[in-house]
């Protein structure tokens, strides 16, 4: 059974149906990406999984638990963690305080060693450990958002547009680290507009358009697909 199995979810913002029956599966150890234009429902899918905007109908099964009705904090406890869209770090807290909040639900004694692990992944964060997060550059804030999400020790990491607003060289650095996090054993569901990088790092991809899945295939074949190239790869 897949680690994450989303079946036919419909999610609404008030009366507006943002997801019109999305089905996605993620196997353990995979990197899966959702690509699509603005308003396609990529972020809403992630918010549905993490419980911030629960779906009205449909099922989300994670690691043997039905979570479409579960409050966000219990979903984090089960092992799903999200680096939300727009990073949303706590600007007036230090880098360390941000990371500690990422471990909010944990009380074990390996929190310190996990902060160490984040610092190894993002050495820049260690240099800025005592700095207020809001004073850092966009790239550093993105590193912090990912690091903070890792602090809950998730089985599944949800990344929402990690390349947003970053210089190309930084995007590359972030994606190298995303691949490294996956090699260390974390399954990743990645949402991107920047389809180039997303399809490179992932094994499978889903194309979303106005709340439905229009295509799903291994990332390598999506990269070759002329429609995808025209719409999302700028070819």
């Amino acid at each position: 059974m897949a680690l994450l199995d989303i079946e036919d979810i419909h999610t609404f913002y008030g009366g507006i149906e943002a997801l019109k029956g999305i089905s996605v599966t993620v196997e353990e150890g995979e990197v899966v990406t959702l690509i699509g234009a603005n308003g396609a429902g990529k972020s809403t899918t992630l918010r549905s999984i993490s419980g911030l905007t629960p779906p009205r109908t449909g099922s989300i099964n994670f690691d043997g638990h039905e979570i479409s009705d579960t409050p966000p904090q219990d979903i984090v406890k089960l092992g799903i963690s999200q680096a939300p869209e727009g990073r949303r770090i706590f600007p007036r807290m230090t880098v360390r305080e941000n990371l500690e909040l990422g471990a909010f639900l944990r009380s074990d004694d390996s929190i310190e060693s996990d902060i160490r692990r984040v610092f190894d992944l993002f050495p820049r964060l260690e240099e800025r450990e005592r700095q207020k997060a809001g004073t850092m550059s966009g790239g550093e804030q993105q590193m912090l958002a990912i690091g903070r999400a890792l602090m809950s020790n998730p089985k599944l990491l949800l990344l929402d547009e990690p390349s947003m607003g970053l210089a190309p060289v930084l995007v590359e650095r972030i994606y190298e680290t995303v691949a490294e996090i996956n090699r260390q054993g974390t399954t990743i569901l990645l949402v991107e507009q920047n389809a180039n990088y997303a399809l490179e790092v992932s094994s499978r991809g889903y194309v979303l358009e106005t709340g439905t899945v229009t295509m799903t295939a291994p990332s390598s074949s999506l990269r070759e697909n002329p429609d995808v190239q025209r719409a999302y790869l700028g070819a």
């Binding site: 911030l52 966000p72 984090v76 949303r88 706590f90 990422g102 909010f104 999400a149």
Partner: peptide, 11 residues
């Protein structure tokens, strides 16, 4: 500081 982010962290 940020309600959405706090919820994402499991608060």
């Amino acid at each position: 500081e940020d309600e959405i982010a706090a919820a994402s962290m499991g608060v």
